[in-house]
Simulated assay, not measured.
Amino acid sequence: MIGIISDGDSDFHVLKKLIEAIFEKHHKENSLEEEFYRFDNIDTIKVVQNYFQTCKKEGYGLHHKHTTQFVEDINEFLGTAFLKLANEKGTYLTNQDILIFNADSEIILEKTDSYFEEWFYFVYPVLWKAIEHFYDNRIKEGYTYEYLPLILPLIPFPCIEILVRAAMPNYKEKYRSFNAKPDLKQEVWGTDSIPIAYNKEYLQRTLAKHIIPQNIEQVYKHIPEARKFIQILSFNLSK
């Protein structure tokens, strides 16, 4: 089972389609609808954006008070999601299950290489620290690695739509400097309203056309924050 912790409808649908495309290309299987679970009422974007804003004002570092609070907040999200996903599955989770933590950063990079600047990149070491703490807490509760899910974070800059635009033809560096709303959403869906995009099936048609196995390489090439995500999910020992 694959649980996706995300803040909005478009985030869930994009990630679901991306994971299905990766699995189809590298594992020769199409994931069934019921294998995905979306968590409701988990406000990931507020916590992530507040962290970025505080870091901008007060600095960043693993021992800052706001970083410690951010790690605790992520741990709480993961702990809640872990229990909910097991309940939804109807049995215990295993290392064959996946838990995705996603939130839009709403931060413009200006150019792709800016991702590697410390201020932007720092959110990922902190997220991995939070994930390590989650595993440590579960071990102390008596779990073993065989009964814990794979947890992967994905924080796109500025929003999930950048992954979709990277999979579409004629991707350009300029899209990194687009605001999430209205510019990038308008570019990808043809409207900056996700409800309209979904109800008129712009979103579904765009994903069906562009988030496909042969376009995964384009996402990997242009979106560095998605590379570890793709690399891990595409790993196949049986080849």
Results as ranks from 00 to 15, higher is better:
Y92I: 11
G79V: 11
G79H: 14
K56R: 11
T68Q: 10
V48D: 01
T80N: 14
E88V: 02
I74A: 07
D97I: 07
H66A: 14
A81P: 04
F52C: 01
F70A: 12
Y60E: 07
L83E: 12
F70V: 11
K84C: 13
G79N: 15
H64I: 00
A86I: 02
E58R: 02
Q49N: 14
K57Q: 14
N87Q: 15
G79P: 04
Q53R: 15
E58N: 06
F52A: 05
D73H: 03
T80F: 06
T54I: 06
G61L: 13
E76R: 09
E76Y: 04
I100N: 03
A86L: 02
Y60L: 07
K56G: 00
E88P: 05
K89Q: 11
V47Q: 13
G79E: 15
E72V: 08
T54N: 04
E58Q: 09
H64Q: 06
K84F: 08
H66L: 12
L85R: 09
A86C: 05
G61Y: 10
G59W: 04
Y60P: 01
T94R: 10
G79R: 07
K57D: 10
L85T: 12
G90E: 04
A86F: 02
T91Q: 09
L93H: 04
E72I: 13
T67D: 10
L62P: 06
E88A: 11
D97A: 02
Q49D: 05
A86G: 15
Q96F: 08
T80H: 11
L85I: 14
L62N: 14
N95V: 07
N50C: 11
T67E: 09
L78S: 07
E88T: 01
L78I: 15
E88I: 04
C55P: 00
L93E: 06
Q53W: 09
N87S: 14
N95T: 07
Q49L: 06
N87H: 09
Q53A: 15
K89N: 12
G59Q: 06
D97C: 02
K84I: 10
I74M: 08
N75S: 14
Q53Y: 12
L78K: 01
D73L: 01
I74C: 05
D97E: 09
F52E: 07
L62C: 09
E88Y: 08
G61P: 09
H64R: 07
N95P: 05
Y92W: 01
H64S: 03
G59I: 03
I98Q: 00
E72R: 13
F52L: 13
K56C: 00
E72C: 03
E58P: 00
C55G: 01
Y92C: 03
F52Q: 02
L99H: 03
C55H: 00
V71K: 13
F77S: 12
H66M: 13
V71I: 15
Y51K: 12
L62T: 13
G90V: 03
F77D: 10
F77W: 11
N75D: 11
Y60C: 07
Q49G: 03
E58I: 00
Q69I: 02
H63W: 04
I98F: 01
G90S: 06
T68V: 07
K57I: 14
Y60D: 04
T54K: 11
K56V: 00
E76M: 08
H64P: 00
C55S: 05
Q53M: 08
